[in-house]
Amino acid sequence: MKEITAKELEQKLVKGEKVNLIDVREVDEVEQGAIPGIIHIPLGLLEFRMNELSKKDSYVIVCRSGGRSGRATQFLDSQGYDVTNMTGGMLAWEGEIN
């Protein structure tokens, strides 16, 4: 499984790199703060909404601590998507939130 740290992801965003982000946390968690521009698909709905994602694009998967995003990354990878897990999740995120 490919992984990226919160700091590495933040540096990519600060440089202006286009990164497709998916937040698999629950609605109440996202309401407490999320990375700007992130797509919210709760883990429980991922299987039903993965058709919204393109296999031509790459995605970074985010959750609270890295566990759920790890499961989501493994699942999407098994379905042929190019995905990377953000280790440490939002607990490790020091960048901008909205």
Score class of each variant (00 low, 15 high):
Glu3Lys: 13
Glu3Ala: 14
Ile4Met: 14
Thr5Arg: 06
Ala6Thr: 03
Lys7Asp: 09
Leu9Ala: 09
Leu9Val: 09
Val14Cys: 01
Val14Ile: 13
Lys15Asp: 00
Gly16His: 03
Lys18Cys: 10
Asp23Gln: 12
Val24Ala: 04
Val24Trp: 00
Arg25Lys: 08
Val27Gln: 11
Asp28Lys: 04
Glu31Trp: 04
Glu31Ser: 11
Pro36Leu: 14
Ile38His: 04
Ile38Gly: 08
Ile39Gly: 02
Gly44Glu: 02
Glu47Ser: 11
Arg49Ala: 15
Met50Trp: 01
Met50Lys: 15
Met50Ile: 12
Glu52Asp: 15
Glu52Asn: 13
Leu53Pro: 02
Lys56Leu: 03
Asp57His: 10
Ser58Val: 07
Tyr59Ile: 07
Val60Ile: 15
Val60Phe: 12
Ile61Asn: 00
Ile61His: 00
Val62Ala: 10
Val62Tyr: 07
Ser65Val: 10
Gly66Met: 05
Gly70Cys: 04
Gln74Ile: 07
Phe75Trp: 05
Ser78Asn: 11
Ser78Glu: 13
Gln79Asn: 06
Gly80Ser: 05
Gly80Val: 05
Gly80Trp: 09
Val83His: 03
Asn85Asp: 09
Thr87Phe: 10
Gly89Glu: 05
Met90His: 09
Ala92Ser: 10
Trp93Pro: 03
Glu94Gly: 14
Gly95Glu: 05
Ile97Lys: 14
Ile97Asn: 12
